[in-house]
Design a protein around this nucleic acid. Structure first.
Lengths: 112, 112
DNA sequence: CCGTATCCACCTTGATACTG
DNA sequence: CAGTATCAAGGTGGATACGG
């Protein structure tokens, strides 16, 4: 098995509270700031901005400004961003099939 | 596309700073508390305890106490824990192949 | 519309000391 | 050996107000 330290670094991206949710929202094409804000329930304007900036910095997505009135900024996955999204697909699958088990396990544990 | 809310819940596990590292360490069989502590560089005794408790509660691993002197507690993945570990494998793969790209993207971004 | 700036409450976490 | 208890520091993130 490979170097655990690499896993550490990736957790910095994947472990982020919002990052994977944003990546997922963009899987079908670019979205604008406000569209993302509406789509991701509970995210604050600040955290959306910060997280988008981080993902742009990491080369996961691109930020494109159209200078019209009103301003128009769209975010789109890069090639690398799309591969990340594919790599997280099994995990999403897993979550959907196992969350009931987890909830059950928690209930059983807490029952004692 | 499935319910994003489920992804949210899983991030509670996966997004944890230490959880996935522990799951990975256990992939080849049970380990004891001290062995885990040694293996996972930088984790404090407190966080190891807390994270193990959470994972046990979620049904990801089991905690087994052997009442000998000195005390002997071993942790082992459950069946569900092993499937989680398999689901995260592609993500680990991705991290290993793409971390150089990410570092490069960051350097380029910061250069401006 | 798409941010940035500031403030602050909260949570997480490490350090340290102590126990069966 | 394998924890628990306590505390304090730092980071995280929400609310709010403002700017291009």
């Amino acid at each position: 098995m490979q170097d655990p330290c690499q896993a550490r670094e990736v957790l910095g991206i994947v472990g982020d509270k919002w990052a994977l949710l944003i990546v997922r929202m963009l899987k079908d094409g670019p979205l604008r700031f406000t569209e993302l804000k509406r789509a991701i329930d509970g995210i604050s304007q600040r955290m959306l901005t910060v997280t988008l900036r981080d993902l742009e910095r990491d080369g996961i997505l691109t930020r494109t400004v159209r200078n019209v009135m009103p301003p128009h900024v769209s975010y789109e996955l890069t090639t690398m961003g799309r591969t990340l999204r594919e790599a997280t697909a099994p995990l999403l699958e897993w979550s959907i099939t196992h969350l009931p088990h987890i909830d059950a396990a928690r209930a059983a544990y807490d029952h004692r």
